[in-house]
Amino acid sequence: MTDVSPIDKLESGVERLRVPEPRADRESLLLKVGFGVAGLGLVLIIVGYVGVSGTLDVGEQMPYLVSGGILGLALVAIGMSLVMRYSLARLFRFWLARLVYEHQAQTDRIIDALRQR
């Protein structure tokens, strides 16, 4: 072991210490990802529609139906699920905070009323 004092070792060590940065707002990120995925699904559906409507040959329509229609629908479903999940979480959290606030305000009003009697 070297003769570096414990304090010096700690001071130089913490400078090099890897400290994980706080995570970004994951909820907001996933909400945006949900909108993005649903938007991509819609674009695929439109591309599929344009492709299918451009030909009467069923063999040529099938790839558009599968890649554009079914995959597009799946992406819209996944994207909207994410949007629902994270927008509802925000809504319910706000609702709960509002309820707690209202409850507290109501209690304060009752206490004030009792004091004035």
Partner: peptide, 20 residues
């Protein structure tokens, strides 16, 4: 803060090696 450095989330074994 340890020695003035923000260390939230640092691994406990890393801190122990440094002398905590």
């Amino acid at each position: 803060h340890i020695s003035g450095r923000h260390v939230n989330g640092a691994a406990p074994d890393a801190l122990a090696r440094l002398g905590v």
